[in-house]
């Protein structure tokens, strides 16, 4: 025991004398998605890498494998000690991440958020791809349009606790009350981000609610899952499927006419714009109070308060889905 301790002390002093340093002049941008395995963020990543190449900065893209608020905090704290220049976060939990982000700002690291915002005092700008309000309204309006303004619908979400999912549901409910009182939400079911589970849930929903007109899937794996269930139940056209997802995962169902609409902002652009904004902020080119922001090859974007607006969410359907490959 003693001997190994002495040896380890010796090794320790040896190692410290071999101090490692790798000064790097490139700006270091760190991007934190909610979950890096999610197709949505994978396509964000492609856009952010393009921006990093254009701008000649170094990009870190690291996030939890599953959506995990505590893990996000740990990653931010890792980055603080690493000394990155700017952090861009898609917050899994608004309040939770803000603690770590405030700490980062105290250390002189610039912070922007994208996809899902943190508390306003924990970041400089929010790259707003579509506000929860925008998403909620787009989903609810589309649902009402497909159902002719009345009928039963159900929601399949990722987990009951995920922050953005709750926010979207609130906005969906608000829009329903305001504009589409004829629509009735009969159930909200979680699928744990599993396509297979979403399929089972959708099957149960259809048999339990014979008058169900539409399934709204608000996490990306749930859209193809619900579509497969509708197809297998032979209810194509009778039960509509809409949701938030990616073109490639839903192409076949959209073309078959099972899934009517997939709603999405252009995720690659979101990644691109986020990195552009982050770098401009770190270089001091983007300051509070600006009203427009020019983002490389994408051109100019409007800034409203401290929100950089990417634009309205995009509706993929049978007619335009082939124009997109991600």
């Amino acid at each position: 025991m003693t001997r190994s301790f002495v040896v380890s002390c010796l090794l320790l002093s040896l190692a410290s004398s071999l101090g490692w340093s790798a000064p790097d002049s490139k700006l270091l941008v760190a991007l934190l998605p909610k979950s890096k395995g999610n197709a949505y963020f994978i396509s964000c990543k492609a856009g952010s890498e393009r921006a990093a190449r254009d701008l000649g900065v170094e990009l870190l893209f690291e996030g939890p494998v599953d959506s995990n608020a505590a893990k996000q905090n740990e990653i931010v704290e890792n980055w603080i000690t690493l000394g990155v220049d700017v952090i861009a976060v898609a917050a899994e939990n608004r309040e939770g991440i803000s603690t770590a982000l405030r700490k980062a700002r105290r250390e002189g690291i610039k912070v922007v958020t994208f996809d899902a915002d943190a508390m306003p005092d924990a970041r400089s700008f929010f790259v707003n791809q579509a506000t929860p309000q925008g998403i909620g309204e787009a989903l609810m309006d589309e649902a009402a349009r497909l159902c002719g303004g009345e009928g039963e619908f159900a929601i399949i979400c990722a987990t009951l606790t995920a922050g953005n999912q709750r926010e979207w549901q609130r906005e969906i409910e608000r829009r329903r009350q305001e504009r589409h009182p004829g629509m009735k939400l009969v159930a909200v079911r979680p699928c744990d981000d599993l396509k297979d589970r979403a399929q089972s849930e959708a099957t149960a929903l259809m048999s339990a609610h014979p008058k169900l007109r539409l399934i709204m899937a608000i996490c990306s794996p749930a859209v193809p899952g619900a579509a497969e269930a509708v197809k297998q139940a032979g209810k194509k056209g009778a039960v509509r499927v809409i949701g938030l997802g990616l073109p490639n995962e839903n192409r076949r169902y959209v073309k078959e006419g099972v899934t009517d609409t997939v709603i999405l902002w252009k995720t690659e652009d979101l990644g691109y714009l986020t990195v552009q904004a982050a770098v401009a902020l770190a270089k001091g080119e983007l300051k509070a109070g600006a009203s427009t922001f020019k983002a490389g090859s994408l051109g100019e974007f409007r800034i409203e308060g401290d929100n950089i607006l990417l634009g309205k969410p995009f509706l993929f359907n049978r007619d335009n889905i082939d124009q997109f490959d991600f």
Partner: peptide, 29 residues
């Protein structure tokens, strides 16, 4: 002791390869 050795080796490796000086001249990692 085995586990302690593993821990020490881990620690030394990370100390050696995971510490650097960033462009603000601050030791990080």
């Amino acid at each position: 002791v085995l586990l302690l050795l593993v821990l020490v080796v881990e620690w030394l490796l990370f100390y050696h390869f995971g510490t650097s000086v960033n462009r603000r001249g601050v030791t990080v990692g």
